[in-house]
Lab assay of single mutants.
Amino acid sequence: MATKAVCVLKGDGPVQGIINFEQKESNGPVKVWGSIKGLTEGLHGFHVHEFGDNTAGCTSAGPHFNPLSRKHGGPKDEERHVGDLGNVTADKDGVADVSIEDSVISLSGDHCIIGRTLVVHEKADDLGKGGNEESTKTGNAGSRLACGVIGIAQ
């Protein structure tokens, strides 16, 4: 089992970053940390998408990683996509320092995120509470600013 993974985020604009993942036990939580720069100040949706395909930019990554066919939600919700990591918060300089621990994603097994795409979005994720159909699919997080395929790390 891989215990570490990394993702280099890039987009068409100024947004870029490096996100690290570490899972010490196969059924334990995954620590997610790193930094994203070039964002507007505020909240930005942060999700693992189904495919590791960036051939047409971030759009070819498909929908959120959702092997259990659930509705979109927040990272602490029972009803959520596996890939729903909530929001990252950018400061006035456009930098989001990421520090998350998640017990639904994994670096092995059915919820493995390796080979899938991590995406940072234009807007805040409403965590499935926006009151419309799009909220239950995407959290109304808007366009995909930057993305990268999650790969095994040393």
Rank of each mutant, 00 (worst) to 15 (best):
G130T: 12
G74K: 02
I152L: 03
N27I: 04
G74S: 13
T40V: 12
K71W: 13
I113Y: 03
V6Y: 12
P29L: 05
H111W: 06
V30G: 04
L9S: 04
G45A: 13
A96P: 03
L9N: 00
H72A: 11
G151Y: 11
V120A: 01
L118D: 01
E78K: 05
D93S: 13
S35H: 11
V95E: 15
V48S: 01
L39M: 08
I152A: 05
E41A: 12
G148V: 04
D84P: 01
G34Y: 01
T40R: 12
G151V: 12
Q16G: 08
E25N: 10
G42A: 01
S26T: 13
V120H: 00
A56K: 12
D110I: 12
G115P: 00
V98S: 02
V6Q: 15
E122R: 10
I152C: 09
I150G: 00
E41V: 13
E122W: 02
T89F: 05
G45V: 03
L107W: 02
P67T: 06
K4D: 06
K37I: 14
K71S: 10
G130E: 14
G34K: 04
V32C: 12
G131F: 14
G62W: 13
V149Y: 04
G34P: 00
D12P: 15
I105Y: 01
V15M: 01
H44I: 00
H64T: 01
S26I: 14
F65E: 07
L39W: 03
G128H: 02
V119F: 03
D102S: 14
I100V: 10
G13N: 10
G17S: 04
L145K: 08
K137M: 12
P67F: 00
T3P: 04
E25M: 11
Q23E: 05
D126V: 06
A61V: 11
E41M: 15
I19Q: 01
G11H: 00
G28H: 15
P14I: 11
C7T: 06
L118P: 10
H111P: 07
H121T: 15
P63V: 12
D93V: 08
V104W: 08
L39S: 00
L85T: 02
C112K: 09
L39F: 00
R144A: 15
G142S: 04
K123P: 01
D12K: 14
N87Y: 13
L145I: 09
S26M: 06
L85I: 03
A153F: 07
E79A: 13
I36H: 03
A61D: 09
D102W: 00
G151I: 03
L39D: 04
V48G: 00
H121Y: 13
S103K: 11
A61K: 12
H121D: 12
V8Q: 11
I19D: 04
D110L: 13
S143F: 09
N66L: 04
H47G: 06
I114A: 02
K71N: 15
N54M: 14
E101W: 06
T89D: 05
G74N: 14
G73L: 14
T136Y: 02
D12Y: 15
N66M: 03
G57T: 13
D102G: 03
V32S: 03
K123E: 14
P29Q: 14
A153D: 14
A61M: 01
K123W: 06
G38P: 00
K76S: 12
T3A: 12
I150D: 00
R116K: 11
A61E: 12
I113T: 05
Q16P: 05
G128F: 11
K129I: 12
E22C: 07
